[in-house]
Amino acid sequence: MSGPLGLGPGGVVAPPASSLRAYLPIVVASVVLALVPLSLGGSRYFLSLGVHLLVVASYAVAFNLVFGSTSQLFLCQGALAGAAAYCSVILGNRYGLPLWLTIPAGVGLAALLGGGLSWVAVSRRLEVIYLGIVTLAFSLVFTNLLLGGRELTGGETGLVVDGGAGTWLRSPAAAYYLFLALLVGHLVVYRAIERSRLGWGFRALRDDEVAAALAGVDVARAKVTAGVVGAAMLGSVGATFAAHEGFVSPTTFAFGEVDVRVLVVLALGGVGTLLGPVVGAVVVTVVDELLRPLGQLRLTVYGVVLVVIFLGFRQGMVRSVRSLWMRAGTRAGPRTD
């Protein structure tokens, strides 16, 4: 057993040694995703659906880095993305700063918050449950401050975003490729970290923190790094999404809106796998659309999916498909020899 606290998959899961094989899946996935709008004829409805898919996939890559790689249960994906988004929007609306300044500022804030949460967790040696509760409380504090700080945040109604208005950012097709680029960037960062010295440290500390520390891995630094990078990923997507939508509100980044979905996406795709977030996001988005007539019962479906995954199907789709493939390969092996 490995993965976060023995919940993840068993078996050896090292990233491929050769650079080509390591990054090939990203290339394939991005080519497929790039062709999707063309095959759907560029309908506005499908493009906006596609943007949501890419956004949730990017969030899930970040969660994969923080939870999958270093077992830190961050239940504040939405809040971190939202902090970056609101920071960027408020700087832009109030002071007329351009997006290329406000988005990085938002990302910086998110990274600071994420790193801060990791740092607090590490230095107070918080067990997973306490970090979960602290980050959940952080999410709710964030949402309630948005609701309460009416003059700054627009409260429940939210804010109209000035930055990016009337530009290509608001065009669905261009935005689709922008978010695809962000997703690919996140995947490349994820894989690069996985293959680096830091990634080795992640694997070791995920298996056993004490043994990792005794072997010389700086566990605290590794976790805080994961927190910072993951939060920066969340922030970059959140702030860019706000600029694209032209509108932010507390519900855009609410726990029930973002975190729940990200958890389902990653659990479904496979915690700790490179393409798990993408596969999970595709499945969840498609299923979500198909189940739209069910209304509130969709939540029930998500709940059941989570329960089923964590009860018996913990490896997620990417790994299950891969092991099926490999089993098929070994069965076919002797015949081809």
Partner: peptide, 18 residues
Amino acid sequence: VLLSLLLTLGVAFAADGL
């Protein structure tokens, strides 16, 4: 603790929707 947390979260969603 972690597994129970995730399972009951799923149960909570399922029950809430229902």
